[in-house]
Nucleic acid binder design. Structure first.
Lengths: 347, 347
DNA sequence: CTGTTAGCGCATTCAG
DNA sequence: CTGAATGCGCTAACAG
């Protein structure tokens, strides 16, 4: 009756036509060893015939599992985050999980809203990356209090007790890159990066500073730009404006993302400089399009996809093996290696 | 008791502490007019205090609504699809829906699997774009049979009865672009595009042909490439290889995506040609990074974000107003306008 | 091996 | 305005 109304076949319908109990049908569907093979076959056959689709919602309510991972990213339109999502998705689906992505639209308020949404029982665990605005952590601590498995990645400025952490060593990676620039006999090196509110950028800048220290070099404050804009166009103007006003141009630039490197190169080109002949540029990230750019970008390569896989692995571990356990490591932290990729924007 | 086990506060817990019935608490939570304001206040206050979070799963099972839209895209790593998702998400969240994105990884089998997953009651409607492999439509017809609101977008090679359709006019857009190239007095024009299995590409190619016809021009078969590769690198080699083997180079290229345009320009540059001085290039799509490329890309601008919004609008219409209804239009089809964006790869 | 029963947490009749 | 009872579709404990 009901089945005819909403056109959905239920276990009950199968049970009735087969003159079995719902329990048996349910067990047959989940291939329980406590059901005769013959019965299983019959159930499966009729289920197929009737076009049965298990109701995932009912299943979840009953079992307490949704097989969905919540993923919170600061924004959609940054290929890095999409790559991480791809990695999470890749690992998750191998293990019969799906992912539900929520963008925080670069806003702390949206981030909190996203966390709240995931407290409503729709996901079995949460993977998230903080926005640049995020400066307090009650929302994620609450997640932990509620025993929600949680793994943080990328922009981690604060270690959360009980959560997993997946990141790269931004500091060392930046040192490595800037050292290359120093070794290339560049007299002065500039830095162009994103908002200083974002810890990954700060760490990359710290690496920039450290590399100079290490080699007893100095850099000029006026060669450092922390962009405040958020949209591609505004960012471009900010970078272009900064560069066009420089009295003396550095011999090289270290940029905290590939995108800034591209904006930098674009601006330099407009200003009549040749990259890398006049000025070398190194980016950070190694997105797909970085190698498509002309000239092809030299950069620190960040394992975005692998980061996603690792995040998913830790998360599923927490989900399966209980809350505070992490087989991945004991610190609840994984630091992924980066590597330099030399292409055409360095000599 | 239970509440203490899984640490979740339920309506029952609130009801007990307030000496009210579950029903009243439930009504208070949904701001029913059938509850005294005073009671509502008390309920809301105590709910807040106890840290109540409604169980969305239970809610869904009971109400038959999940407030989730399923979105199936061919792949994650194509910015166009992410833009569409952003648009869907933007509209959806304004209306209290969330989206669950599933990638088909360019495979028809995965696509079918994704559809199947959405038949399990986790979503209220489905928005989808076919992969290039998709050549039969039983899976979506089944979705329709099961009364699942469905909206197709972008790569539509087959109109599905009962589904909504959102697309652009690939044919006319291509004609427009190629006409520009013809008007620029280019003697011969080449075409570089993606797999001929994808209808959008075919339509763009048809437009290429039509523009020639319209102006009594002809083009050479050897100036046409339908790429078969799928990964950026392979694609690059395929394009480069194609171009390097041409005996005579056309004066311009029309490319079926921005990405092919970039690969084309990159290859031409490597081969010693100047764009646009020697050869003009027009792309299709207008992704964010198209304007960051050097030289900035001239292209057909496709309203990706808006397409997403429209998709969500149609889908929510179908969900709210019943299955076969669509307030948007009567044909269950929306064709979004494109426009030419002139930048630096044309003269 | 199979059936009976009792929830999962909430919404929603139907009573009052 | 509030409460008691039923059911959403499935799982799982218990019984046989």
């Amino acid at each position: 009756m009901k089945a005819e109304i909403n056109n959905r076949v239920r276990l009950e319908d199968i049970a009735r036509t087969l003159k079995l109990s719902i329990a048996t049908v349910s067990r047959a569907m989940s291939d329980s060893s406590r059901v005769k093979q013959e019965t299983k076959n019959k159930v499966l056959a009729i289920a197929e015939e009737m076009g049965y689709r298990p109701n995932q919602i009912a299943k979840s309510l009953s079992s307490g599992k949704t097989n969905i991972l919540g993923v919170i990213i600061p924004r959609y339109d940054e290929p890095f985050f999409i790559e991480v999502c791809r990695g999470i998705d890749y690992y998750a689906r191998k293990h019969n999980y799906r992912i539900l992505i929520s963008s925080s639209r670069n806003s702390f308020n949206y981030e909190k809203e996203n966390v709240l949404a995931f407290e409503r029982g729709t996901v079995d665990g949460v993977a998230m990356c903080f926005t640049h605005e995020t400066n307090s952590f009650e929302h994620v601590e609450e997640l932990i209090d509620r025993k929600m498995p949680l793994v943080l990645f990328d922009n981690i400025n604060h270690k959360i007790d009980g959560a997993g952490h997946v990141k790269i060593d931004d500091f060392s990676s930046a040192i490595k890159a800037v050292e290359d620039l120093i070794k290339h006999k560049n007299e002065s090196i500039g830095y162009i990066g994103g908002t200083s509110k974002k810890s990954v950028f700060n760490k990359r800048f710290d690496g920039f500073v450290e590399a100079h220290k290490k080699h007893q070099k100095s850099f000029k404050k006026q060669h450092v730009l922390n962009c405040k804009s958020y949209h591609q166009e505004h960012e471009f103007y900010e970078v272009f404006n900064f560069l066009s006003k420089l009295r003396e141009m550095p011999n090289a630039f270290f940029c905290s993302t590939d995108n800034y490197a591209i904006l930098c190169i674009k601006s330099l080109t407009k200003l009549g400089y040749k990259v890398p002949k006049d000025i070398e540029v190194i980016g950070f990230g190694n997105l797909h399009y970085s190698s498509m750019f002309i000239p092809e970008l030299t950069c620190v390569s960040q394992p975005s996809f692998k980061m996603g896989e690792k995040v998913a692995e830790m998360l599923l571990n927490k989900i399966d093996n209980g809350f505070f356990v992490s087989d991945v490591d004991q610190d609840n932290e994984v630091v992924l290696p980066t590597k330099m990729v030399y292409r055409d924007t360095t000599r």
